[in-house]
Design a protein around this nucleic acid. Sequence first.
DNA 1: GTTCCATCATATCACTTCGATATATCGATG
DNA 2: CATCGATATATCGAAGTGATATGATGGAAC
Lengths: 203, 203
Amino acid sequence: MLDVAILGLLMDRDHHGYEVRSQLRERLGVSANVSFGSIYPALARLERHGLVEAVAPAAPRSPAISTGSLAGERASLRSLRTSAGLGRRGRKVYRITERGRQEFRALLADPTTVDDGRTFSLRVALARYLTPALRVRLLERRRQDLLERLTEVRQGADNPDLDAYARSVMSHAAHSVELDLEWIDDLLSIERSDSETFAREAK
Amino acid sequence: MLDVAILGLLMDRDHHGYEVRSQLRERLGVSANVSFGSIYPALARLERHGLVEAVAPAAPRSPAISTGSLAGERASLRSLRTSAGLGRRGRKVYRITERGRQEFRALLADPTTVDDGRTFSLRVALARYLTPALRVRLLERRRQDLLERLTEVRQGADNPDLDAYARSVMSHAAHSVELDLEWIDDLLSIERSDSETFAREAK
DNA sequence: GTTCCATCATATCACTTCGATATATCGATG
DNA sequence: CATCGATATATCGAAGTGATATGATGGAAC
């Protein structure tokens, strides 16, 4: 689901690979540091599929009339970089394409993929790109999954075959799921009160 | 860290691959269904490294004096399986070796690997195999990580650049981390009261 | 009793992700 | 002006995922 995350960031504004990593944490709440070994291949993949494109850099500094041979080499290297989409400081900045926007909305709304905690949080963080109806569907789907998980970990917490540590893990998992459920119910009640407001104003 | 999980299960009793998957959920609280595409290669890897070994099955039913050619083929197939460590119903049961036990304790206590939520829960679920001192170290290390994460997500929750959904994700992440911290502090206080009890009894 | 189905069980595939490592540039500090 | 930490891209092997194939087993339905 890294693709959705990257496309989601690019919906807002252009980014280069290095920046994507920090933005994932800061804007989308991704807890683990996603490795560059997944980000750069992902960007290349998205570019290959025509969902993003490399952006010509803003203003590649004064053209610098070359004098010495060394300076000339450096200048040509620089122009080589800029033509390849590399801006100042070797940055390769990407922009989302129209096909990318379409694909992003499709991926974000896709009901066939099962969410775990990470992908669900990611989707919520990007929920402003969903319609109210799709938001409610996303939340209710996750709610169901969590209810099932809850009965499972509650059983584990009461399982006398497990030692105190394993039971503690199960019991904490149960509390954690309960907290998630409260969150989802909050979000759902906000969605519903929003749609009420909308209905009232529509009169 | 799948290796630790599997070795941890085998510390208790022998298992075959298919069983490992369910036990991961039931006994170790792993939330995602770990795929067979990782379990079987992991077992093969552990066997290659001499940390586990295939077990000859308990009692491969009555030897069945073969009569017809078809029955004979089936019987020979069965003996072929049993000799390869395949028991009834094609199960390949694994047992942990002495080297495996040593490696398990080393991996479980290893302070160089950074825990995320999943690996930390896994380690706690297996914490009975750690010494009290190592348990406290594990808990305090995680506690530090969570405190850092907490300041980060709290900043995100207050960041006016983010929309309501992204801020909600951050705010929920903060509550979730707070719950984790309470859990860890509970576990720590239990560890300390246990060591007190021990000290008192030692008098 | 045998046919049929869900579950049990192993295995492999292409693809994605991770963690480590290499390399180079920029900007501030001394 | 040297050097060090942060910025930035890239690539590698190992490991995990999700899908799919294949077949045995046990029990239920008829």
